[in-house]
């Protein structure tokens, strides 16, 4: 690895660290992002100084290719935190990456000044360094994407929690209004919520309302049935309500076996049935 080109660069970077930093910061001052005032110049300079510092340390051993090597730990860590803080400050990922890439031009300039007499070594050094900086720029991109994924996961989780409520609407009667598509993760969540609620409220009747479920296929029906079977094991009777004409047609056409589950067209009918089962009488007060 310690070919001529690689040696050139690490030597040059160490020797000219100060000058490179000055040039780089100056170049950034003309940059669009700093013009927008998203980041104070002082911080920009600090970031650049630190990045250059860790980079100089990393390339000191002559390794310009493998950025997973231990000497690049500092660089990787700093880039990750830089990408995260820039994202928070409102930079787009390409702006952050461009910032990293802009180091190339500066270093090329210095390389050229230093080694203008050795064009071959210069070319190799330029290519090597360019590849390295590209990789570093991509790290910021990856960090950015990872951050985004994290946010999406969090949102998905909270959506999952919000979308599976279990409500006790009367003594011993639970209602679980289902809205949206039911995939296996949600089915699992529904089942767990429901069973916990049965224990907590000592309920003996569970009404599952699928008015808000757009489509019921064999898979969804199976998931609902499994939930109801589990509820039955805990001594709760299940009523499936909110079955509109469309859904009832699909169920029959698909040949889904609802296996003796009590079904009603509307939540209202289901509730009436539940009252009947519990021998409750709902009547208008006299007088």
């Amino acid at each position: 690895m310690a070919g001529k080109g690689a040696l050139n660069i690490s030597e040059l970077l160490t020797k000219k660290e100060k000058e490179i930093l000055d040039e780089w910061v100056k170049a950034q001052a003309d940059n669009l992002a700093s013009r927008r005032g998203l980041i104070p110049e002082k911080q920009q300079r600090e970031d650049s100084a630190r990045l250059l510092g860790v980079l100089v340390k990393a390339v000191a051993g002559g390794n310009l290719e493998d950025i997973t090597a231990p000497e690049y730990d500092g660089v990787n860590r700093f880039l990750a935190s830089l990408a995260a803080s820039r994202a928070n400050q409102g930079f787009s990922p390409s702006e952050t990456a461009t910032y990293i890439f802009s180091l190339k031009n500066i270093v090329f300039k210095f390389l050229q000044e230093e080694y203008s007499d050795r064009p071959e070594a210069l070319l190799k050094a330029a290519i090597d360094f360019s590849a390295l900086v590209d990789k570093l720029g991509l790290i910021t991109f990856e960090t950015y994407v990872k951050g985004r994924e994290e946010v999406i996961r969090e949102q998905q989780k909270s959506m999952l929690e919000l979308s599976t409520p279990v409500i006790q609407i009367w003594d011993e009667i639970l209602v679980s209004p289902l809205i949206g598509t039911i995939d296996s993760a949600r089915a699992r969540q529904i089942m767990e919520n429901l069973l916990e609620s049965i224990v907590a409220t000592k309920s003996s009747i569970v009404i599952m309302d699928i008015t808000g479920v757009p489509a019921v296929d064999t898979e969804v029906a199976n998931r609902l049935l499994r939930t109801m079977q589990a509820a039955k094991l805990m001594g709760a009777e299940c009523i499936l309500t909110g079955i509109g004409p469309q859904i009832s047609q699909t169920i029959v056409h698909l040949g889904v076996d609802l296996g003796g589950v009590i079904t009603r067209a509307s939540l209202r009918d289901g509730l009436t049935l539940a009252f009947k089962r519990l021998k409750l009488n709902v009547a208008r007060a006299e007088g």
């Binding site: 069973l195 000592k202 003996s204 589990a230 805990m234 001594g235 709760a236």
Partner: peptide, 28 residues
Amino acid sequence: IRPEIAITLQEMGLELKGVHFALNLEKG
């Protein structure tokens, strides 16, 4: 039967025929 056990039994596909279920002794 506890919730987690209900889920396990259901996943095992074990059919408990001719048995009634209740939440607790009193209800049973």
